[in-house]
Simulated scan of single mutants.
Amino acid sequence: MIEIEAVGPDPQRLPGAFGCFPSGVVAVAAMDGGEPAGIAMASFTSVSVTPALVSVCVQRGSRTWPRLRAAARVGLSVLAEGQGEVALRLSYREGDRFAGVEREATPDGSVFVHGAAAFLDYRIHEEIPAGDHLLVLLEIIGLSSTSDEPPLVFHGSRFRALATATIAAA
């Protein structure tokens, strides 16, 4: 029998439970005063085809999010397998997050990380308060993707690679 424990006032166990679900990792970046601003996120998901919407969750205390929110356009790079170091750099609280990260900016100010599996150019559609985070809906303006490049996967507080499995017919 499965035993369920109440979360109660001690949410310290939540990250471990959330970590049981693998997710991709994205870099969200834009130009801000001539310098790139960006952050790594593992809370990216598709939302709608019509209109073209995806979402991310941002901590309310983020110092980077206000800089990205102010940008007219923002780039989202779905990081590829082997880009764990890029994800770590973009999660730094201090220092140059883009040191050594190959990237390019569009004329509209979106910033994309070279070597990523997919690129989405977007503008913010809506922010929805959600506890200690903001659920941010992003409207996709343009995109580029390839299914040949495997994504970076975050699971159990570690970066992992996908494996191809063969499932036999019953």
Rank of each mutant, 00 (worst) to 15 (best):
E85V: 15
E94K: 14
C20V: 05
A52G: 04
R158D: 11
H114M: 09
V136A: 00
L134S: 06
H125C: 05
S43K: 02
E35R: 15
I140A: 08
I4T: 06
G38C: 13
S43D: 07
G38T: 03
V28K: 08
S157V: 05
V58R: 08
T166Q: 14
Y92S: 13
L53K: 06
A29M: 07
G38Q: 02
S48A: 11
L152K: 02
G142E: 00
S46A: 15
V74W: 03
H155M: 09
S144W: 08
E149V: 11
E94V: 09
P51S: 13
V136G: 00
R69F: 08
A71R: 01
E127I: 09
G19D: 07
R63E: 12
G131S: 09
E104R: 15
G75P: 01
V58A: 11
G156P: 07
L88W: 13
G61T: 14
T45L: 14
V28W: 05
R67A: 08
H155S: 11
I140R: 05
G33T: 12
V113F: 04
L134G: 03
G61R: 13
A99L: 13
A87C: 06
E139H: 06
I128Y: 12
D32N: 12
R73P: 03
G34I: 10
V28F: 05
F18H: 07
P66H: 03
G95Y: 10
G82Q: 02
V26R: 00
I128E: 09
G19M: 06
A168R: 02
A80Y: 04
A72I: 05
A52K: 05
R160I: 11
E5V: 15
A169I: 06
S147I: 13
I2D: 11
I167Q: 04
Y122Q: 09
G131P: 04
F21P: 04
V111Y: 01
F44L: 08
V7A: 11
P51V: 10
I2A: 13
M1A: 14
L120G: 00
R97C: 08
S43E: 02
L88N: 14
F154Q: 08
F159G: 02
G75K: 00
A72G: 15
T106R: 00
G115D: 04
G19I: 00
S46G: 15
S77F: 00
A87V: 07
T45D: 12
S110M: 13
G115Y: 09
G38H: 04
R73Y: 10
F44Y: 07
V58W: 08
L14I: 15
V101I: 13
T164E: 14
F112D: 00
P107R: 09
P129D: 11
V113M: 04
E126A: 14
V78Q: 03
V7S: 07
P11Y: 11
S48G: 08
I128L: 14
Q59V: 03
R13Y: 13
M1N: 12
G61L: 13
P129V: 04
E5S: 14
L120Q: 01
G75I: 03
A161M: 11
R63P: 10
S77N: 02
V78D: 03
R63S: 14
A161C: 14
A40L: 06
G19Y: 02
F159Y: 12
G142A: 15
W65P: 01
I2G: 10
M41E: 03
A70T: 06
D10H: 12
I39G: 01
P11G: 10
D121C: 09
S144Q: 11
E102A: 15
H155K: 10
P22L: 07
P15K: 06
A40H: 01
F98C: 03
